[in-house]
């Protein structure tokens, strides 16, 4: 997606979010006397955010008409080629993690973690054997470190 289109999303999002904060903060109790109440700080921030949102929109609009604007190269900017495999990876990851978080408390840490790691590695293209090996190793390592050595209660 072009930068200016994302900028429009950012600007709109900032304004919408800040407006929500402003409306929500109406409910906050008013301060007694000369004190400054709990609503002051959020209101100031939200107002600034609205101004910044408008500025981003203006900049985006300028970028649209001048698509050749030179931007400072971002070191983290890397090529993401949207491919079928890539999107499948993301979809599977999200589904697996949602399931993991919802069942880990009831089924227990060791079996859920084993299955989670195995499915993810398999999806990412690791061979079955290596997936099982690494899933076991990582789970065992984490269990020993957290639960046995540090006596941290796992989910």
């Amino acid at each position: 997606m072009n930068t200016w289109k994302l900028d429009i999303v950012t600007g709109m999002g900032s304004i919408a979010f800040a407006s929500f904060v402003l409306i929500y903060a109406i409910r906050f109790p008013e301060p007694r006397g000369a004190d400054f109440g709990p609503a002051l700080f959020p209101r100031v921030i939200a107002s600034i955010l609205i101004i910044l949102g408008v500025l981003v929109l203006i900049q985006a609009w300028k970028l649209r008409t001048q698509p050749a604007t030179e931007c400072e190269p971002d070191p983290l900017d890397e090529e993401i080629v949207a491919s079928f495999h890539g999107l499948r990876n993301v979809a599977v990851t999200i589904i697996v993690l949602v399931i993991y978080i919802s069942v880990v408390g009831t089924i227990g840490f060791i079996p859920t973690t084993l299955v989670m790691l195995f499915v993810l590695m398999k999806t990412y293209g690791v061979s079955v054997l290596r997936s099982v090996l690494f899933a076991c190793l990582i789970t065992a390592f984490v269990y020993v470190l957290f639960a046995v050595l540090l006596r941290v209660v796992l989910p």
């Binding site: 227990g108 840490f109 060791i110 079996p111 084993l114 054997l129 099982v132 076991c136 789970t139 065992a140």
Partner: peptide, 22 residues
């Protein structure tokens, strides 16, 4: 050899984890 070992580790872990909240 590694497969047998793996299956052993895996099954031990599974049994152990199921036995605890039993």
């Amino acid at each position: 050899k590694p497969t047998t070992l793996l299956m052993f580790v895996l099954s031990t872990l599974l049994v152990a984890s199921i036995a605890v909240p039993g």
